[in-house]
């Protein structure tokens, strides 16, 4: 069915509202001048400035480190949870499955405050020196990222033929060999998709990170927030553009892996 003209206009307006700000942000990262609203010519100056800004680079490195740790833990925990929910029947199984959805639907601000109280009470926020202080933040990210992995892996398991597990055992493989040679290889696409999802969620998380970072530890989104409170410079545009590129690339990869391959 072809779109009628009014529908086309609505669609155009929606796309404009959604994507024009991002396009402007990216465009002005290449602006030659300081202004973020007046075009003064093309240059890579702000990318060079951003690359030479030690605070930005450190924050970016922190974000990547936290995301990497959170991704590894989330993927292991999420996959294990999904397999447990699929393979075993036990008391409270449906409750556990319901609990998986909680971090997904609970407002992030509430989770942030809750984690802040726990971290402050236990001294986790200030106890560790940098860079060990990144670990509690990564754990906070695991709390909201691993259910996403579990949900993606579980979806893949729903279409999994349990006879494959029996066939493996019938052919002489024990539980461990069956897990590593049959189950995990077949779940790999879902695990990769879940891992990339966890990585992007962690990388650009602001709210929970903001509540759980101690003094002296900054992530990229938190640093950008503190920088724009003084002034918005094209340097932030440049750094944000890099973040957008990284996130989009990972999201595209996740999408590709999530499509059924066989």
């Amino acid at each position: 069915m072809r779109l009628s003209l009014p529908l086309k206009l609505v669609l155009g307006a929606a796309l404009l509202v959604l994507y024009a700000p991002i396009a402007v942000l990216i465009a002005f990262s290449f602006n030659a001048g300081r202004r973020v609203s007046v075009w003064q010519g093309f240059s890579f100056d702000w990318y060079v400035r951003a690359a030479n800004d030690a605070r930005l680079i450190e924050a970016f490195g922190n974000s990547l480190t936290i995301a990497a740790i959170a991704t590894v833990i989330s993927t292991l925990l999420g996959t294990a949870t999904a397999i447990a929910l699929w393979r075993f029947s036990f008391r409270g199984k449906s409750v556990l499955f319901g609990l998986l959805g909680v971090p997904v639907v609970v407002p992030e601000i509430c989770l942030g405050v809750a984690l802040l109280i726990v971290f402050a009470r236990t001294g986790l926020m200030t106890a560790l020196p940098y860079p060990a202080s990144l670990l509690p933040i990564a754990l906070a990210h695991v709390a909201f990222a691993f259910p996403f992995v579990a949900i993606v892996v579980r979806a893949r398991l729903a279409g999994f033929d349990p006879r494959l597990i029996e066939a493996s055992r019938d052919l002489g493989a024990g539980e461990w060999a069956t897990l590593t040679r049959v189950l995990l290889p077949l779940l790999r696409p879902a695990m990769v998709a879940g891992a990339l999802l966890a990585f992007t969620l962690s990388l650009d998380d602001f709210v929970i990170t903001f509540f759980t970072t101690g003094p002296g530890t900054t992530t990229f989104p938190v640093l950008v927030y503190s920088m724009v409170r003084f002034s918005v410079t094209p340097e932030i545009n440049a750094a944000s553009t890099v973040l957008i590129a990284v996130t989009l690339a990972l999201a595209a990869l996740a999408y590709k892996f999530q499509k059924p391959s066989t």
Partner: peptide, 8 residues
């Protein structure tokens, strides 16, 4: 197996 259960 009836469904063959060949490892895909």
């Amino acid at each position: 197996f009836q469904s063959y259960a060949v490892f895909p």
